[in-house]
Design a binder for these strands. Structure first.
Lengths: 315, 315
DNA sequence: GATAATTACGCCTTGCGTAACGATG
DNA sequence: CATCGTTACGCAAGGCGTAATTATC
């Protein structure tokens, strides 16, 4: 324990040579010349003060010391190989771990992912998510950054909503986002039909609070200001930290939600939701593709990043 | 298996840093600077394409990948440390394994070894022996060399009888040997008292065949020729491959043995044997201290070799 | 401001290849 | 004489140190 290990390259050379009972085969395994292996083993013999191989005829034999030495050594290197193998299985050349918020996954990624899987059938895509615990994080960009930094190392690619300022990371903007009111088509008719923005004062406002949490102003305030509507009390109505329950409430005719149109693509297509007004407000924040520096260079990560960008442009 | 391991120094740096949860402590353990450890870990992160440490506050945290990676890695390096430890226990800095023929051990080494042990109480001396299987070995120097080469790597120091020509070995002559007839004191009197060499023709000749096996001429032929005695049939009498049974036969009054006086020191001192004639014949072969090259440099080996030489000169 | 980690730069050791040599069946 | 291991020599890269820098409490 207290003694430092002998040079590791020498140990590796010996382990391989002892396993193969041949310097030549060890040299092949290690992709070096037999001379290099021979040299390493002599270094080891000198450092340990023990002869390890008996040079005999055509090849080598283990000495008694080597017989004592070798088994644990082989076991050790087996462990190292296993350790690397585990990592390769978990985060291997053909394994891609993607992290994203639940709303992005269910409303944007999943409807498209089959195309990536079809295009690259050898890549094992694993999608994981985290529900952000907003109360525990500081609001605004600070909390955003802290959350990303604590997550990005656990995956290969992260898709996050934010301003993109993640130091030391490879960051690509995926797509800008636009906010507009959305509601059930039932609200377009009935007692208080939604015809113009001013009609909103007679409806329940559902609040997707991501605006407040990430940007400062709420989505409703942003949109109503652009729409030139005044005199509406935006403190009314239920608040949601995440977009999915906010949109579900809208689908259930509980009111009108101001949220990102891009995440409602499916509900809009199927008619569960409609956008009653053409005005859309571009957000300062947007979705970003984030990877840490080592991961960003991996082939699978590059492929997926490119594919995400192409999907965002074409759809 | 098929993939080569990442650089081992990088693996070692990571293992140490992950175990200590600190680059600084790892640097201390590895006797390098924190900068070196940091560099190694970045190399590893780049090669694996995975971030391993989350840089946080004062220190580091393991990422999920590192948590998967680390345990087997630690186990692996533990095995390497154990492997080296076993070797150190078996052939450690304070362990000295001595090999010698049985006759040398019981008749020369053991009576003196207590002085070495007293002088160097921290050195754990382990004496081992091999009974040479003469029928299986070619006679003369060739068999001698083959036997030594197959033994010297299993011990730290070998004391052997021979001509000293062991290629690639560190060889020191321990002491020259002289041959003279030895017999029980009972034979000096009685019916056929041994007064002069010529009296030998009326006694049984016991043959210590090491002369034939190592040098060519038998001990009896050598001695009788020097003594100027002719007409004695040296084919008479029992032959022994090893000196101990030959000397035991002499002690038991079975006859007169021509053997190396130096190995009979104890029996001569206690009077179990006597040397009836002053003539002693110097052998060409002698005892040599032999070590392989790595072992010969070890401190304990150097000490023991010097001690052997001093003992041989003073006694 | 103190501690720990990272970066930049340069040195020097280490590991390796080539090629000639040695041993052995 | 064919094969495998060793030796000699020299190059190139990897590993490391020093010192300045960054980050975080």
């Amino acid at each position: 324990m207290s003694h430092p290990l002998p040079p590791l390259t020498a140990l590796r050379a010996f382990e391989s040579a002892a396993r193969h009972r041949s310097l030549k085969k060890a040299a092949e395994e290690l992709n070096v010349t037999p001379a290099a292996v021979s040299h390493q083993i002599q270094i080891l013999e000198d450092m340990l003060g023990v002869r390890l191989f008996r040079r005999v005829h055509r090849g080598i034999e283990l000495t008694a010391s080597a017989e004592i030495f070798f088994p644990k050594l082989e076991e050790g290197f087996d462990c190292l190989r296993q350790a690397v193998g585990r990592l390769r299985d978990h985060r291997g050349a053909d394994v891609l771990e993607v992290g994203a918020p639940p709303s992005f996954i269910s409303n944007w990624l999943m409807p498209r992912l089959h195309r990536f899987v079809t295009a690259f059938p050898d890549i094992d895509v694993r999608v994981s998510t985290r529900v952000r615990q907003f109360p525990r994080l500081p609001r605004g960009p600070r909390g955003d950054v802290a959350s990303v930094m604590g997550w990005v190392d656990e995956v290969d690619v992260l898709v996050v909503f934010g301003n993109g300022g993640y130091p030391g990371m490879r960051v690509d903007q995926l797509m800008p986002l636009t906010v507009t009111p959305l509601c059930s088509p039932a609200l377009l008719e009935g007692d208080n039909p939604l015809r113009q923005p001013d009609d909103l004062r007679r409806h329940v406002l559902l609040h997707d609070d991501r605006g407040v949490l990430y940007e400062g102003p709420s989505f409703w305030d942003m949109w109503l200001e652009k729409a030139g509507v005044t005199g509406i009390d935006t403190s009314r109505g239920p608040h949601f930290w995440h977009s999915i329950p906010a949109m579900e409430a809208a689908v259930a005719c509980k009111g009108v939600v101001a949220t990102t149109k891009e995440l409602a693509r499916l509900d809009l297509a199927t008619g569960r939701l409609v956008a009653p007004f053409p005005l859309e407000v571009r957000l300062a924040s947007s979705y970003h593709i984030v990877s840490n520096e080592p991961a960003s260079k991996r082939e699978v990560v590059r492929l997926f990043r490119d594919w995400l960008g192409k999907e965002a442009r074409t759809a």
